[in-house]
């Protein structure tokens, strides 16, 4: 196993991690600020991807497609918040899970109704496609480097938003004491809609960016959603910083585990058995990581509440 391969896999892990972060950031904001478990977050990811594929197909522009993904997911998020979610803030978590699960079904079948059962086409634009040669002779797809860049830029932007702006202060205040900031004259329901739309827009962006290298199809959001939940549990619910660190940890564990565990087992097992056992264990690696973090810090790495 050469060092080039290892560096390439670390980059893959980082890229996977930052995309998970885009999903997890919205999820953790919504859970932290409003105390809401939003299972339909994966549907917003799908909405972003479908909007991007549709606009890219109609206009041929990838940038317009990204704008459309952000706008469509944010609009869908705001609409869902106003029509459905708003009634659930005071409800028990089980009711929230039930209602947002219903939203998943509505979004999935609605998308199938509009776009059909077959996957849509969305591709990387020419100016971002193909591999680039990094120092040390590493060939790496340019688009994935761009994804890493976008992920870090969004992380920086979110940090600036929460730490340096008035909205950010309101969001953080809302996390700590929602009655008090309502009493101080902040329009709490508008703030909630805004946070929800922001989270949705990030999910939609992730869906469009990832849709270009994967497949745009109904149900694409749910597998990512599960990992995004793992991320926010590891990072500490409500913490953007936690979501970032958690996402990178999960991304790296998942990627490196998938590559190196089968190799490790091959040292003392027969090839076929080793790859099967190794990959089975690799798919558990993320959850094992989560258990270890939770044993060590029950509220997650950066969680405020126990």
């Amino acid at each position: 196993m050469s060092s080039i391969l290892i560096i390439e896999q670390v980059l893959n892990g980082l890229q996977f991690g930052v995309m998970l972060f885009l999903m997890a950031a919205g999820l953790t904001l919504i859970f932290g600020v409003m105390g809401l478990i939003n299972l339909a977050h994966g549907s917003l990811y799908m909405v972003g991807a479908f909007a991007a594929a549709w606009v890219a197909g109609a206009t041929g522009s990838f940038l317009l497609a990204l704008v459309a993904a952000l706008a469509a997911a944010a609009a869908a998020g705001a609409l869902v918040e106003i029509v459905v979610i708003r009634r659930l803030y005071k409800a028990a978590h089980l009711d929230q899970v039930l209602a947002t699960f219903a939203l998943i079904l509505i979004f999935s079948e609605g998308t199938r109704w509009v776009f059909g059962s077959f996957p849509l086409f969305l591709d990387i634009p020419d100016y971002l496609s193909g591999p680039v040669t990094l120092p040390g002779g590493i060939q790496y797809p340019f688009y994935r480097l761009v994804l890493i860049g976008i992920g870090f830029a969004v992380a920086l932007g979110l940090w600036w938003l929460t730490a340096k702006t008035r909205i950010g202060i309101q969001i953080r205040a809302g996390e700590n004491d929602r009655e008090m900031i309502a009493a101080l004259g902040v329009d709490i329901s508008k703030l909630y809609t805004l946070v929800f739309a922001l989270g949705a827009a990030l999910a939609g962006l992730a869906g469009a960016l990832v849709g270009a290298i994967q497949s745009v199809q109904v149900g694409m959001g749910e597998p990512v959603l599960i990992l995004a939940f793992v991320v926010i549990v590891i990072g500490g619910i409500g913490s953007i910083r936690g979501a970032f660190i958690g996402a990178l940890l999960v991304g790296l564990t998942d990627t490196l585990g998938g590559v190196f565990l089968p190799e490790l087992f091959k040292l003392f097992m027969e090839t076929t058995t080793a790859t099967q056992t190794g990959s089975a264990l690799a798919s558990m690696a993320v959850y094992i990581l989560m258990s270890i973090v939770l044993i060590w810090r029950p509220s997650g790495l950066f969680g405020a509440r126990a």
Binding site: M1, S2, I4, L5, E8, Q9, N12, Q15, F16, Q139, P141, R144, V210, I213, Q214, S215, M220, P223, T255, G258, V259, P262, T271, T272, T275, Q276, S279, A282, S283
Partner: peptide, 21 residues
């Protein structure tokens, strides 16, 4: 090399790097 991926996996960057190597 013989690799078993996860069912439903959507990102194959790690496997593709191994193919390259």
């Amino acid at each position: 090399n013989e690799i078993y991926t996860k069912l439903g996996q959507t990102d194959y960057a790690a496997e593709i790097a191994q193919i390259r190597a």
